[in-house]
């Protein structure tokens, strides 16, 4: 591992390969009971009990304008930002990947705006390309407008 290398956890969501910086990941859990929160943004799945802590669960598919899943056993990647934990609901969690600077590419200009807003760039792998998500961007900004734009 070179000094400039980082590690990302790979995720899969609606057939897409995504990644998220290991440093932002606090926990990976199987999705348990989520209590819906009426009137919250559509991409907020609800709140859940993570070992005695209340964590807001983000429906990452809804957040990224992807079709909803039905029945799949989902995983939840708990990211910690400014001391607050949020759970990102994804289809599956892959592995931890060491990424060197040489493997990185900037976002292609053709990437839709609502993806570009949450992307940290692309990681090249032999078999596929991974879009690295920016957890902070996922949890802020004006996602409703982005979803409308995506629809």
């Amino acid at each position: 591992m070179t000094h400039s290398a980082t590690q990302i956890v790979t995720l899969s969501l609606a057939g897409r390969a995504l990644g998220i910086d290991v440093m932002q990941v606090q926990d990976v859990i199987r999705l348990g009971t989520v209590t819906p929160v009426p009137r919250a943004a559509p991409w907020i799945a609800g709140v859940m009990n993570l070992r005695g802590h209340i964590v807001t669960a983000i429906d990452l598919r809804a957040r990224l304008g992807l079709p909803p899943t039905i029945g799949e056993r989902s995983m939840c990647v708990v990211v910690s930002l400014d001391g607050e934990a949020h759970g990102l609901i994804v289809d599956a969690v892959g592995e931890v990947l060491a990424v060197s600077e040489a493997d990185r590419e900037p976002d292609p200009p053709t990437l839709p705006a609502h993806w570009r807003a949450v992307s940290r760039g692309i990681v090249r792998r032999e078999e596929d390309l991974i879009l690295e998500l920016d957890a902070a961007a996922l949890l802020s900004g004006c996602p409703d407008a982005q979803i409308v734009a995506a629809a």
Binding site: T35, V37, R39, G46, V47, I54, V55, T56, H86, L139
Partner: peptide, 26 residues
């Protein structure tokens, strides 16, 4: 417990809590 930042602009809730059965309630 206070609601998370992503929910804090909803005026309908003053907080949330974990029930005896382990579920979260608003």
């Amino acid at each position: 417990k206070p609601v998370s930042r992503t929910l804090s602009d909803l005026p309908l809730y003053s907080g949330n809590a974990i029930l005896g059965d382990g579920n979260v309630i608003m």
